[in-house]
Amino acid sequence: MERLSAISLTMALAVASAHAEEKPMDTEHQNLRLVPVAENLEQPWGVAVLPGGLFVISERTGQIQTFYNGERQEVEGLPGIHVEGQAGLLDIAASPDYPDTGWLYFTYSNGDTGSTATALARGRLAGDRLVDVEELFEQNRRSEPGPQAGSRLAWLEDDTLLMSVGDRGSPERAQDTQDHAGSILRLDPQGLAPEDNPLLEEAGYLPEIYSWGHRHVLGLAVDEDRDNIWAVEARSNGHDELLLIQRGENHGWADEGEDSGMLERGASSGFFNEDEVVEPAYRFSEDVSPSGLAVVNGEHYPQWQGNLLVGGLESEQLYRIEVTDGNEVAGVEELLDEPLGPVRDVRQGPDGYLYVLVGDENGMLYRLEPNE
């Protein structure tokens, strides 16, 4: 697919803007604006921004929508997806070699009203259909459809894939290292555990687990320049967290509030204690329900290099988090003067722009541009 010219992209944004207004943002370092790119989305969850100006958006209700040059198209050919509560079609991401292979990876709830599991599949776009669809991975223990299914995807520099799975509403599962729930997994492009996974040969651990002790990671991003993996997680005790993920380590859910003492009771492996829990890099001071996370390194935001951009489901806010070279949080800026709507996803595209996915039944995709 040929890359959109600047004129074509401007026309595409103009079509969307005819129905939705731009939103100016005066931030500490830069004047910006949110420009509508796509609208009328039904419970959007994730967005893949592809080279050439193609936007691929997953809707939790079980649809994929594509937007190109102002034209919208619904994609057919998805596998069976169970939609109930927070279960349904979840995240979507293009493979690093997408221009050569065309692979799109996506997570979803596989099952029925009796039980579901968070699964990973991939397929290729062919017009308005997804073809060559194959399921690559399914978490090892099914449960009743409900909260905290997950999921987010992020590629590492070595072309392995990180996939988060929520605790499925059962906090104790996040401390069971023979259960995929409550974990971040690391998989190869075929959905298998890479040979250098940190716990591959450790007794009592599933080989796909990269880190565990997670409630519901809905933001996952890789900073290749600093060799960091960042995640944001909603905690039911009101202390939503920014996490610097450590390979093969326990990140502590559930260890506070009503679930206090769970770590002392231990996991199935029995190989750790409370002293070995990784502390969060930052705890939000208000209920944010963080969702969506991007590492900023695009040329359009010269004062934000290396910062993190985080969305809030409950707060309906965007946050810029300044991170030092030592991975310390130096400051947090709220970017919006008024609520934008529940933020679902935040991604940086190959064009260097940041994209923000917002909303429920009337969802929107915005592009964050300098307001010149």
Rank of each mutant, 00 (worst) to 15 (best):
E249T: 13
R142N: 09
G150P: 07
N140F: 00
L242T: 08
E249I: 07
S143N: 13
E201K: 14
N228G: 04
P145V: 07
L153S: 08
Q175P: 01
I229E: 03
M163Q: 11
Q190H: 15
L156R: 11
Q148R: 11
D188R: 01
A221H: 07
L206D: 09
R247S: 15
Q175K: 10
E202Y: 12
W253I: 05
Q175N: 06
D196G: 09
E202K: 15
R235P: 04
E241Q: 12
S211W: 02
P194C: 12
A174M: 03
E233V: 01
L161Y: 02
D159R: 15
V222Q: 02
R141M: 14
E208F: 01
T160C: 09
S211M: 02
D196K: 09
G182N: 05
A181F: 10
E208V: 06
S164E: 05
G182D: 10
E201P: 08
D225Q: 14
E233F: 04
I209R: 05
S143E: 14
G146R: 11
G238T: 07
H239V: 02
I245V: 02
A193I: 01
E224L: 08
Q190S: 15
E201C: 06
G169W: 10
I229S: 00
P171S: 09
E241N: 05
D227T: 01
G146P: 02
S236A: 13
S211N: 06
A154T: 01
G169Y: 08
D176A: 13
D188S: 07
L192I: 07
I229Q: 00
S143R: 14
G150N: 14
D176K: 13
S170I: 15
L199N: 12
D227H: 10
E241D: 09
D179N: 15
I209H: 01
Q178G: 11
